[in-house]
Amino acid sequence: MKHAHGGNSMSKEIVKGSMASATVYSGGKLLSNAAKHPVIVFGLGVVAGYLVYKYRKEIVSGATKAVDAGKDFVLHQKENLEDLVAETKE
């Protein structure tokens, strides 16, 4: 039996949503259990620090690109606003 395309995509979205909520729940439970053991928290901190150190150049370049894109966006919006104000004055 064939299913309608809309119903099939809806069921896929429902499955995705329940998988996401299960992941968040299990991740929260894992972190809750890890917080009870200081050695695990320390180990997670060491791993996180190592990864940040290892990928620091990529992190810095990504942050710089994001800041530059934000500045460009603000300047573009400012120009659009100035054009709009100039048009209303005419």
Results as ranks from 00 to 15, higher is better:
Met1Asp: 06
Lys2Asn: 12
Lys2Thr: 14
His3Trp: 09
His3Ile: 10
His3Gly: 12
His3Ser: 05
Ala4Pro: 02
Ala4Trp: 08
Gly6Asp: 14
Gly6Cys: 11
Gly7Ile: 05
Asn8Lys: 15
Asn8Ala: 15
Ser9Ala: 15
Ser9Phe: 08
Ser9Leu: 14
Met10Tyr: 07
Ser11Gln: 13
Lys12Arg: 13
Lys12Ile: 14
Lys12Ala: 09
Lys12Met: 15
Glu13Ile: 06
Glu13Asp: 10
Ile14His: 04
Val15Glu: 14
Gly17Asp: 09
Gly17Lys: 05
Ser18Met: 08
Ala20Met: 12
Ala20Glu: 14
Ala20Trp: 14
Ser21Asp: 01
Ala22Cys: 07
Ala22Asp: 14
Thr23Val: 12
Val24Ser: 06
Val24Tyr: 04
Val24Gln: 05
Ser26Asp: 06
Ser26Cys: 09
Ser26Gly: 10
Gly27Gln: 08
Gly27Ala: 13
Gly28Phe: 01
Gly28Ser: 02
Gly28Glu: 03
Gly28Tyr: 00
Lys29His: 03
Lys29Gln: 13
Lys29Arg: 12
Lys29Ser: 04
Leu30Phe: 12
Leu30Cys: 10
Leu31Tyr: 11
Ser32Asp: 07
Ser32Ile: 06
Ser32Leu: 12
Asn33Asp: 12
Asn33Gln: 13
Ala34Phe: 00
Ala34His: 00
Ala35Gln: 02
Lys36Cys: 02
Pro38Thr: 05
Pro38Gly: 05
Pro38Gln: 04
Val39Ser: 13
Ile40His: 01
Val41Glu: 04
Val41Ser: 05
Phe42His: 08
Phe42Thr: 09
Gly43Ile: 07
Gly43Ser: 10
Leu44Lys: 00
Gly45Leu: 01
Val46Met: 01
Val46Ser: 03
Val46His: 01
Val46Leu: 03
Ala48Arg: 09
Gly49Trp: 00
Gly49Cys: 00
Gly49Phe: 01
Tyr50Phe: 05
Leu51Gly: 02
Val52Tyr: 04
Val52Thr: 02
Lys54Met: 00
Tyr55Glu: 05
Tyr55His: 05
Arg56Ser: 04
Arg56Met: 10
Arg56Cys: 12
Arg56Ala: 09
Lys57Ser: 11
Lys57His: 08
Ile59Lys: 03
Val60Asn: 11
Gly62Ser: 05
Gly62Arg: 02
Ala63Met: 09
Ala63Tyr: 05
Thr64Gly: 03
Thr64Met: 03
Lys65Gln: 15
Val67Ile: 06
Val67Lys: 03
Val67Met: 01
Val67Gln: 04
Val67Asp: 02
Asp68Thr: 08
Asp68Gln: 10
Gly70Ala: 00
Gly70Trp: 00
Lys71Thr: 02
Lys71Asp: 03
Asp72Ser: 13
Val74Thr: 09
Val74Met: 07
Val74Pro: 00
Val74Leu: 12
Leu75Phe: 11
Leu75Met: 11
Leu75Gly: 06
Leu75Trp: 14
Gln77Trp: 13
Gln77Met: 12
Gln77Thr: 15
Gln77Pro: 09
Lys78Leu: 10
Lys78Gln: 07
Glu79Pro: 01
Glu79Val: 11
Asn80Met: 12
Asn80Phe: 07
Asn80Gly: 15
Leu81Ala: 08
Glu82Ser: 04
Glu82Tyr: 15
Glu82Gln: 06
Asp83Thr: 07
Leu84Glu: 06
Leu84Trp: 03
Glu87Asp: 14
Glu87Phe: 06
Glu87Ala: 13
Glu87Lys: 12
Thr88Pro: 07
Thr88Arg: 08
Thr88Gly: 11
Lys89Ile: 10
Lys89Cys: 13
